[in-house]
Design a binder for these strands. Structure first.
Length: 422
RNA sequence: GGAGAGGUGGCAGAGUGGUCGAAUGCGCAUGCUUGGAAAGCAUGUGUACUCGCAAGGGUACCGAGGGUUCGAAUCCCUCCCUCUCCGCCA
């Protein structure tokens, strides 16, 4: 949610910023709504003032006295009017709230111009994509793949996109999760194991609702399976005021992530590239607004380090305005090279939300100077998404003998230096 | 799942229709006192929205939402949560 004050005082600035995201937003309609909300509010407040004054006067009057009865009669009509105007106000407020929820966050000045993913800027590259790998092939074509990653049984038991991980496949998932969590702990993130279902208020605070409910699995009692640990993690401090000295708070969490992925078909969905359920470790920070862009760089580096230690070639994209999400101010994507598919796979997305989520979620800190509550800035990034990292490992590290070499950093967690499909 | 009790300010805890944004205590802040501290004394101590150049006003909030009433922390309804006992169970 944006700062309503900023909208009122500098609508042109907001308009220009939103234009960078290439979204179509009717600010004038909102501003008009805002004006009528304020005048309606003032009407109601004036009437309430009258009611309160009458209430005090009546308390001092003998009950049943003529003066008292006269007041009752007088205030009955005021009461009716209050009811009417309050209903009108409530309706406007609801519209106002809905309108606010549809306004996107503003991009940071350093976000490059651009409309399409092609206009994202390659910020950095690490490792070679040119190394000859004659045996490389898409991971789903590797001999024995189906023994470790059983999509057919998964489809039978649950549905497409819910594979079984078996033997070394399951073991590699567990090793990766362990490796990620251990490394994240070393980087100062406190591990959290959160609920994997959240209520509507939580999904709204992080921006999944109201627009993206079609992307989440919903239970009969209106709980949502988390699409990412970001949701329960961010909501941990919802409606709370932290001490300034507690900032920055850094946390990480492993959860399975559930995404309906409605409407995505085709090449992207082969193998482990896109699943309805997948494992991911998420990094989250609550920081002082003055430091959030430094913290974003650190967050990106924390995620990058994982890929470096896994010896996987990757690149960092700085997202252009048009490819930024609804609620982000600035975002880096980390993409790992999959030598078999000969394409980049997104394995992490590191974003600064500034106060956008914090305002929706009312996460604040008490500023030492003023003693007043201020909104924190929130940031999050994957560290990392398991199946795509796994896919890249299979494709890049496939040996001539059909086995897959396990990177040195992972060997202590995996327990051996090769994965076997046999 | 069944039965009962309860949700009030940072905490504890009063308040069953009006003068209650709310007693009192603790905590916290500032000042006085002191060589310094404690104690003591005094004053202050929520959040949000809104009007105003400002000084300063106004309104809302007693778990949430609705209702009754001229008027609701207080009465009624629905929901959520916590606790105790029973049942069930990883």
């Amino acid at each position: 949610m944006l700062d309503p004050q900023l909208l009122r005082e500098s609508p042109d600035l907001v308009r220009a910023a939103i234009a960078k995201k290439h979204l179509d937003v009717d600010l004038d309609a909102f501003l008009e709504l805002d004006r009528s909300w304020r005048s309606s509010l003032q009407e109601v407040e004036a009437l309430r003032t009258r009611q309160k004054a009458a209430n005090t006067a009546m308390a001092a009057l003998p009950k049943g006295s003529p003066e008292f009865q006269a007041k009752v009669t007088e205030m009955k009509s005021v009461s009716a009017e209050v009811r009417e105007r309050e209903n009108a106000l409530k309706q406007i407020e609801e519209k106002w709230r809905q309108a606010m929820l549809t306004l996107p966050n503003l991009p940071h000045a350093s976000v490059p111009e651009g409309k399409t993913p092609e206009q994202n800027v390659v910020h950095a590259r690490n490792g070679s994509t040119e190394e000859p790998r004659p045996h490389a092939r898409p991971h789903w074509e590797i001999a024995g793949f189906d023994r470790l990653f059983d999509f057919a049984r998964g489809a039978k038991v649950t549905g497409a996109g819910f594979p079984f991980f078996i033997g070394d496949g399951a073991r590699l998932v567990r090793a990766l999760l362990n490796f990620f969590l251990e490394e994240d702990a070393k980087a100062g993130y406190v591990e959290v194991s959160p609920p994997i279902f959240v209520n509507a208020a939580s999904a709204t605070a992080t921006g999944q609702l109201p627009d993206k409910e079609g992307q989440m699995y919903e239970t009969v009692d209106k709980l949502y399976a988390v699409p990412t640990a970001e949701v329960p993690l961010t909501n941990f401090f919802r409606d709370e005021i932290l001490e300034e000295s507690a900032l920055p708070v850094r946390r990480c969490a492993y959860t399975p992530c559930f995404r309906r992925e409605a409407g995505s078909y085709g090449k992207d969905v082969r193998g482990l590239n896109r699943l309805h359920q997948f494992d991911k470790v998420e990094l989250l920070k609550w920081v002082h607004p003055a430091t959030s862009y430094d913290e974003l760089e650190k967050l990106r580096q924390d995620a990058e380090r994982l890929l470096q230690k896994l010896e996987l070639p990757y690149r960092v994209l700085l997202m252009c305005g048009g490819d930024l999400g609804f609620s982000q101010s600035k975002k880096y994507d980390l993409e790992v090279w999959a030598a078999g598919q000969k394409r980049w796979l997104e394995v992490s997305s590191c974003s600064n939300f500034e106060a956008f989520q914090a305002r929706r979620a009312q996460i604040r800190f008490r500023a030492k100077e003023s003693g007043k509550p201020e909104l924190v800035h929130t940031l999050n990034g994957s560290g990392l998404a398991v199946p795509r990292v796994l896919a890249a490992l299979l494709e890049n590290n496939l040996q001539t003998d059909g086995r897959v070499k396990i990177p040195a950093a992972l060997v202590p967690h995996f327990g051996k230096d090769h994965l076997s499909f046999a």
